[in-house]
Design a binder for these strands. Structure first.
Lengths: 245, 245
DNA sequence: TTTTACAAGTGTTTTTTAAACACCATAAAT
DNA sequence: ATTTATGGTGTTTAAAAAACACTTGTAAAA
């Protein structure tokens, strides 16, 4: 790391070992937006704070970075602590640093978002009883700058889902075309044409249609599909394929 | 901020004021990729370290976050210290946190990138004499994880320039169509068709063609254009216009 | 058993956007 | 007057996106 203010100090290599010590240290938090998709609705997992300040208000889950881990690891740890889940899609979003964003102490927060199939997991492992899945559109006001974080996460999810096959992370392994379309309609917050959607998905040629139907959804039943990840990755590697909806 | 590991502690509001103190603090660096465009080449501003460790090696510019500023302000300060320039387009890119990324001390780096019109400014203000503009394609190996940062910045610039009018930040106020095309060819690293490019740009309808020519570039001279920022913003606001090349 | 209700499934046409493509204009230098 | 170097300009074709409506299968109700 280069320290402009300390150029003259830096020139003396003897001072190298302790020349970082003049600099301010800060607390580094990791906050996490957890997206879930339940039937027709995009939801986020929120907790109601049971401690001051802002006790009783809704917030994202979070934790602090520890000395012996990197941020990705911290985000995974935070998520596991809350939900008991591992192997979840997570991605770093943005770092928030307003001086007074946390009234408790100067804290910088690195924000992550995660995509979870709500129904595939039982959440017995949830260690915070005040955690709830809340419809994105009905979400309450959140503490600090967490609303801003959620807005950015939605924008990122929207862009990313259009150009990468991350939507499947929110669905069960087997899903119907209608579920997939509902998911995209929720993410994009607009209606899509059924036939155009199916044509588009089929043209991507990365789903496998099963001989199995989901009979819970209609009298006729709807065919189930799975995302063929290996086929997708092979297409990307061999032909520079671009997933684009 | 919510501290999962400390839920039981947190329930006691009396401990609130010092309950952050159990957490590790870290140094937060700000590193900056400065893009410039010079005639036909995309360049980045690099410095040769004149102090240990990694003395003599090339690196991005950077500094440390101070207690009384947020990250955007720190990035602006770092840039101004190096170049003397203000009012520069800057955007946060990503936060790097590998445990051993800086051998000096555990340091997390929040990375920014900046877009500068190389020729519009004289760099007398440069306070580091070892700073140089280096062609992106000829850039040397950089210290720590700086190469990774540059790669991510290029990817971001590529995406962003295709969907937002940020390219103009790299050009003089008045520019020729060919300059604009050269810029996009540099950013995308591929040749574009001259006529298709002009048709596309004109269809966006956000440039103003001046009655003035740049005579330095050819016998015939090339018309100069300016980006009409107000028109652009009005179109975005009133018609949900999307800049897209 | 027939009817009804409900969501699933399925192709074609039209419109828009992207891509391919080649020649003339200008002015300075010789 | 000729050469030279770069600027400037439209049309045609191909591909992608958007608009659009009816039939099918099944279970429950009549």
């Amino acid at each position: 790391m280069k320290i402009l203010d300390n150029m003259e100090v830096a020139k003396d290599a003897n001072l190298q070992l302790n020349y970082y010590q003049k600099e301010d240290q800060v607390l580094l938090a990791v906050d996490c937006i957890i997206f879930g998709f339940d039937k027709k609705d995009l939801k986020i997992l929120l907790i109601k704070r049971n401690f001051e300040p802002e006790k009783g208000k809704w917030s994202l889950i979070g934790g602090f970075l520890k000395k012996n881990e990197n941020l990705d690891q911290a985000a995974v740890r935070v998520l596991k602590t809350l939900t008991g889940l591992s192997d979840i899609y997570m991605e770093q979003l943005y770092t928030y640093s307003k001086v007074d964003r946390d009234p408790g102490q100067r804290t910088i927060s690195v924000c992550y978002y995660a995509l979870i199939d709500v129904n595939a997991h039982n959440f017995d492992g949830i260690q915070i009883d005040s955690a709830s899945w809340i419809e994105l559109k009905k979400a309450p006001e959140l503490i600090f700058d967490h609303d801003e974080m959620v807005q950015k996460a939605i924008a990122r999810l929207r862009r990313k889902a259009m150009t990468n096959p991350i939507g499947f992370e929110l669905l069960p392994e087997k899903f119907t075309m209608r579920q997939l379309q509902n998911l995209y309609e929720s993410i994009l917050d607009k209606k899509l044409d059924k036939r155009n959607f199916i044509n588009k998905i089929n043209s991507l040629d990365v789903l496998v249609k099963l001989d199995e139907k989901d009979m819970t959804v209609s009298r006729k039943g709807a065919y189930l599909y799975i995302f063929d990840k290996e086929k997708y990755e092979k297409k990307v590697e061999e032909h520079g394929f671009n997933f684009k909806i």
